[in-house]
Each structure stands twice: as structure tokens, then as C-alpha cells.
Design a protein around this nucleic acid. Structure first.
Lengths: 119, 119
DNA sequence: CTGTTGATCAACCTTTTAGTTGATTATTGA
DNA sequence: TCAATAATCAACTAAAAGGTTGATCAACAG
């Protein structure tokens, strides 16, 4: 649970940056080196290298070795954990949670004061 | 594009925090007030209020009015944009991107440096 | 061995984020 | 009117994130 939570933290954080999302997009066309990935951006390749480390920690990418190069590969499998989390709440139906809510939330509709008057 | 990108930024950023994810999870059971949402956490309700503003900016939640209360509602529709983005890359197959990669490496596009012999 | 290329490390700077406490606004019920 | 409740605003702090430059490391090619 806490493990999952930490994993989701690093994964969502990794995707919360436009540079890293563009790196992901690029990698969906095949592996690439740091220099190749850095080219479309205005920032230094050191900065890109850091971004890749973030993605690697999130296990969204992996790296291999090819002489001096360390090609980066997309790891699509990890993305599943994110869609799994999102879908859990995305697929909630109106009627479903409304009736559940009525039971769980002290049986008060949201148009009437709730039972939590005390402080 | 840039609009989408900015929207993805705020949305992924919003989910990159465990407190905000727990708020989402709670809201999937029905609307709740700031005080109710703050209760399970150690942090102040001002902090929770800020988290809700982040979620609201990302359009992941909406708010209504009920006397002094401003109940927060989940907006599952917005989560679709995130799964849509993720699925674009999650569903890439091994063989598919491997062959695409071969094409990119030969045509070189704007990332020319791959022309250096790979192995 | 020497030079070049690909990539990372280290130190530093600036902006953003998550949190705090204290005061303020808004709405209600008595 | 007035006290109580729900929530936000304002100012501040501490830590994290994204970026920079300069030095260093690793793996070849001559």
C-alpha cells in the first residue's frame, strides 16, 4: 500500500513535466540516447540526463549499453499501474457512488446539513 | 497542443501527491466538504483547502454551494484525458516500435546524429 | 598513449510547492 | 444583532524541483 503509494508518487511526478512527457513520446518510436533526446530541447543535456534519471527511477524507462552510449528504452508496462489507478475512479458511475454515499456519509444528502455539527 | 500540454501538466501534477490522490479516492464515494476531507490527515485544513484548489484548477473536482459549506465533487470525466495520454504510449507493442525505430534511424528526421553507426 | 565522444557528477542558483499560524470573509441559526 | 461554523486569504518558512556551468569518468578510434 505505502509501496504502491510511493510508486505512484514517482510515476505521476515523472509525467507531470512536459519535457519528460515528450521524452516518453519520442521513446515510443524506439530507443534513443541522451544526446538524441536532448536535441529538440533548449536545455542542456545535463538537464535532460536528470529528467531521464527521474523516468528511470519511476521505472518508466530502462537503459542498456552500447559502447559509450546508454540507450534509453520505454517501459510501457509501468504505465499500466497509472491507468489502473486512474480507472478505479474514472469509471465510477453517478448512480453507484450516490447510493453508496448515502450509506457511508451519515445518511444525509448533500442538500441537508450533515451530522458533523460538533467540532 | 500547448493548451493540452498545460492541461496535462496541472492534471498530472495534481495526481503526483498522495494527499490529493486520497482526496480523489474519498470523493469517489460521494461529495464531501473541506472539513470532512481534512479529517483523515494530520495537516491543517488550510493545507487541505489548498490541495483542493489544485485539484479544482486541474478540473478534477468541482464545487457547489450548500449554506456555509462548499462541497467538493469528483469530476471523473477529466481523468479520461490522462488515460488517453498514457494509453497512447502504453499500448505500443514491442515489435511495433522496434520496426518503427528502424525507419526513424534510416530516415533520421530532425534527429540526425543517429547516422553514426549503431553497432 | 592521446584525443574525442557520450554521459554523469558536483556545486550552486532560482522558483515552486507543501506546510504553518493568524486574521478575515461569508452564511447561518438563535 | 450576534455568536458560531465553514472556508479562504495573507504572510511566512523549509524543502524540493528544474536549471546552469565546470569537472570528471568511461569507452572507443587513431
Amino acid at each position: 500500500m505505502a509501496d504502491d503509494d510511493a510508486a505512484l508518487d514517482v510515476a505521476f511526478t515523472a509525467l507531470a513535466d512536459p519535457v519528460r512527457r515528450r521524452i516518453i513520446a519520442r521513446l515510443s518510436h524506439g530507443p534513443a540516447t541522451v544526446n538524441e533526446l536532448a536535441e529538440p530541447f533548449e536545455i542542456s543535456k545535463q538537464a535532460v540526463s536528470k529528467h531521464i534519471q527521474v523516468l528511470e527511477q519511476a521505472q518508466l524507462v530502462t537503459r542498456s549499453r552500447d559502447a559509450q552510449r546508454r540507450p534509453v528504452h520505454l517501459n510501457p508496462a509501468r504505465l499500466e499501474a497509472l491507468t489502473a489507478w486512474i480507472d478505479r475512479y474514472r469509471l465510477v458511475r453517478e448512480g453507484q457512488f450516490r447510493s453508496l454515499d448515502a450509506v457511508l456519509e451519515s445518511s444525509a444528502g448533500h442538500t441537508a446539513p450533515t451530522a458533523k455539527d460538533r467540532k
